[in-house]
Design a protein around this nucleic acid. Structure first.
Lengths: 131, 131
DNA sequence: TAGGCAACTAATAAAAACAAAGCGACTTGC
DNA sequence: GCAAGTCGCTTTGTTTTTATTAGTTGCCTA
């Protein structure tokens, strides 16, 4: 996606022009503008989850992308990975403090979507009807 | 990105499990989780812009992706495209009502980033120091 | 009139996401 | 003890998306 360098460029622009987006916002979308991150973080607002549980709950995501995203989000400090010795041994992922701080914004987005987005389900209804 | 079908699948899951993300939130990320959309929308919160102006202000985006994104966002009803007869003739893009309704959430995201994200700009600080 | 700019489009390359299989570790039940 | 299942990833190949770059058309304006 060339995310890192391009957003850095976008940040650079933000400094110079009044019609560019807010630099902080661009920084937020450095993570959230990447496929699956928002949904993963949204899923973790319900509480910590293991890898397999996350995979099930973020339906449609592949193992490899989930693994990659979790790694990046952890590296960025948005989530924490912890190991429970067990038995059975388990790994769980949870929002970090930084991640938790995102919850109000997530709620705002959710509210927006609830009130503003036409349910995409013309297509979905169509599929349901055919299956 | 397989966005449409995969998020539809995610929505389907959201209906069934309590640890999945909020369905509305997933719907929001249908747009915002796609590269550049958030930044474009954020840029348009400053007011309407033409294509070339947007290109300059969303630094790093290519013509073709900008064109594609604007088309999708227009189709989804988040932005409006209007033609000013001129001379000179011009096209401008602005947030629609639905797009404008996103502003509070954008502010929340911006606030979050301001307060929570470590400035990635080691590079940027570096550049500022050198300029 | 010629050049510049706006608003795109088109073709190709590179990167990201998807799909599916695999692996080692670890239970758990028979 | 062993088989089966689950977990938490990793690997490999394919498909889709994004990036790159070149191009087109039309409309000014100097």
């Amino acid at each position: 996606m060339g995310q890192d360098t391009s957003v850095d460029v976008a940040l650079s622009s933000c400094e110079e022009s009044s019609k560019t987006c807010d630099g902080a916002l661009a920084q937020a979308f450095k993570f959230l503008g990447k496929r699956w991150n928002g949904v993963i973080l949204g899923t973790l607002t319900n509480g910590s989850s293991g890898f397999a549980e996350l995979k099930r709950n973020v339906a449609g995501i592949s193992d490899s992308v989930l693994s990659e995203r979790l790694s990046e989000l952890q590296e960025a400090g948005l989530i924490r990975r912890s190991v429970e010795p067990g038995p059975p041994i388990s790994v769980s992922y949870a929002l970090s403090e930084t991640g938790n701080a995102l919850i109000p914004a997530m709620h705002a987005l959710s509210t927006w979507a609830t009130e503003n987005i036409i349910p995409t389900p013309p297509d979905r209804t169509h599929r349901l009807a055919s299956s």
